[in-house]
Nucleic acid binder design. Sequence first.
DNA 1: TGTATTAGAGTACAAATGTTTCTATGGTAA
DNA 2: TTACCATAGAAACATTTGTACTCTAATACA
Lengths: 205, 205
Amino acid sequence: MVTTEDNNLTDAQNELYAWIKNYMRDFQHSPSIRQMMQAMGLKSPAPIQSRLKHLQEKGYISWQEGKARTLQLVDDLVEGIPIMGSVAAGGLVETFSDVNDNLDISDVLKKKNIFALTVNGDSMIDACIADGDMVLMESINDVYSLRNGTIVSALVPGLGTTLKYYFKRNGKIFLEAANPAYQPIELDPELVIFQGKLVAVWRKV
Amino acid sequence: MVTTEDNNLTDAQNELYAWIKNYMRDFQHSPSIRQMMQAMGLKSPAPIQSRLKHLQEKGYISWQEGKARTLQLVDDLVEGIPIMGSVAAGGLVETFSDVNDNLDISDVLKKKNIFALTVNGDSMIDACIADGDMVLMESINDVYSLRNGTIVSALVPGLGTTLKYYFKRNGKIFLEAANPAYQPIELDPELVIFQGKLVAVWRKV
DNA sequence: TGTATTAGAGTACAAATGTTTCTATGGTAA
DNA sequence: TTACCATAGAAACATTTGTACTCTAATACA
């Protein structure tokens, strides 16, 4: 019984569990035992049943007995993250409170016209958008809804895509960095293609 | 055929679709036709078959023919967010590329010992953590694994919780802000309770 | 009113699938 | 080695389940 992970599963159980997780993420439904059998390179359903039973006993999965494709990952119930309170970042403030709320990211993620971009460089550093951050952008339907000061990703033909503050003044488009070291870019409206406006920032450390 | 929604579904189809969505959210797998039949108050599988077919034709669902419980909500494919490329934030750089990857937030979200905190104040502004941001923290198992320079949330008894850089020097704990306007806090190790270390930052604009 | 269309009930059938049982194999500890 | 145990292969079985078909009832439309 050699375990390579820090959990209490055997290699075979680990492999199966990981595969199930992937399958269910991709297809939104449970695989059948015979599918798992095939995926694990086995020729009999019995070993899969055994592994499933172990996974269940150890609290990783559950299913409805006798019903086809009714696996559940008991682990994956975490739809949100508990918000434990506030922290001070300037003086000391609040202590940990009870869970008042849940951080719900899904509302942003579930929108259809959302895409992500990786940030290169530091021109938006003063807007607290750093090199390596992921910015979640929402596609722009009509340019006229853009308000001055919005952070947008814009494609300047022949130059490339950039992340900047959007301003419109006197019929001209200004793309301004949030870093004084960079000069504003002035453009005619017809030369710019706005790809999206900023809805969220994600940074993994 | 009166439709109450703004989509092109009949009432019956709408009801079924909503029920399926709920079921799949709750159980992480597809219901069977006979379950839907029962849930819709019907006594024959035929009407469900018909409604499913319509839902499929209109692009709401799909399934694997002949296979049990293999429904998929084509709408809900957004588990990740397509990463369309990079943006410059400093000079203009890259154009939109094809989707190279998917922004996967779930790996962080699915960890069990993750909690979130709301940031108050600007003492971490130079670390690009701004007022109002959500910081995702991972519980700290052993304090000794903490490395200098890690951003932690620490509870200083009698004062409160704060988000700071962690340093240990000469047996003393130093909690330093990422804003020169704030003085480092020097503490004895036994006076500090470390609640978590930073794993991600989430900002919704 | 009569006809066409649609939805639902009922039934039957074949395929998919979970479950059980038995046997063989390989490794491990006494 | 020998006994034991976990795992894999194999085969058979019962249930679940998707699918197809017919028939009836309700509804819409001319």
